[in-house]
Simulated scan of single mutants.
Amino acid sequence: MGDAIIRTGQCHCGAVRFAVTLSDGFDSIRRCTCSFCRMRGAVVGMAEMGGITILQGAETLTRYRFHTRSAEHFFCARCGIYTHHQRRSDRNLYAVNVACLDGVSPFDFPEVPVVDGVNHTSDTGRPARRAGTLRFIRAGQDPLRPPSRPPGPP
């Protein structure tokens, strides 16, 4: 497990600002294959219940629920950017869009684990399973040589 880190972040237009404590730092980043995450395409990190504080724009956040309606996804009503969601498989965790974090880009991570959300543990009763790995190889980088710096933001 990584060390917890505190970051600030915002939606694209800046109407929503928040502070978050990522429980495992960037060790818990992931993507998901469920229908919603596939379309959204976000890389997320995990925060425990109470780990997100909305600093500005709480009234601008809108919510979306689908399928079992247990996960609650939050978006800025002005610019449409997904900021975070309360997880379905563990209601004590929030997934936070790392692209909204100040100074962080999803392209900072050379490898991002992808979990099998199509066969969600809450539907199958089986443990969560890794579906694969999403890799980002910078232009000019040898794909067979590891990156020169460790994964994660600077």
Rank of each mutant, 00 (worst) to 15 (best):
G25W: 04
A42E: 14
G50Y: 02
D108E: 03
T121E: 15
M46W: 10
I5K: 12
S89Q: 14
V118F: 10
G14V: 00
F26G: 06
V104C: 12
P143D: 07
A58D: 11
R40V: 07
V20Y: 00
R38G: 08
G45W: 03
I5P: 05
C34Y: 02
H12P: 09
R126Y: 09
R149S: 15
H67C: 14
F74Y: 12
E59Y: 09
P146F: 03
T121R: 15
A131M: 05
Q10S: 15
P150M: 13
V118S: 14
L101V: 03
T8M: 04
R31S: 03
M49P: 03
C79W: 00
G152S: 06
Y82K: 12
I29P: 01
A128R: 13
N92H: 11
L144K: 15
V104N: 06
C79N: 05
T53A: 11
F109G: 03
P113W: 02
E111Q: 08
G152V: 04
D102I: 00
R63P: 04
D24N: 14
Y82D: 07
R40E: 12
C34L: 06
R145M: 14
F107C: 09
L134A: 13
V20T: 06
V98S: 03
N119F: 01
S148P: 14
G132A: 01
E111M: 07
C32I: 00
L101W: 02
G45E: 04
F74W: 10
S148N: 15
S122P: 12
V98N: 01
V16L: 09
R38P: 02
V16G: 06
P146G: 03
V114S: 00
P151M: 04
R138H: 13
Q86P: 04
L101G: 01
G2R: 11
V96M: 02
P147G: 12
P110V: 06
P110Q: 09
T121H: 13
C37V: 02
T83D: 00
A77V: 11
N92M: 13
P147K: 10
F136T: 08
F26C: 07
T33R: 04
F136N: 10
S105C: 07
L61N: 03
R129A: 13
R145A: 14
S122K: 15
D116Y: 00
R38A: 14
S89W: 08
R130W: 05
H67L: 14
A19G: 12
P127C: 05
G125W: 06
R88G: 11
L134R: 13
H73L: 04
Q141V: 09
Q86C: 08
L61H: 03
Q86T: 08
V20D: 01
F109N: 02
A19D: 07
S122A: 15
S28Q: 08
T124S: 10
D116H: 00
L61D: 02
I6E: 12
S23H: 14
I29H: 02
I6Q: 14
P154I: 10
R69S: 11
R91A: 15
F74G: 08
G45L: 07
T124W: 02
R65L: 10
S70P: 07
H120A: 13
H85C: 10
L55F: 00
P143C: 08
R17G: 02
A77N: 14
D24A: 15
G117Q: 00
D90M: 05
H67T: 15
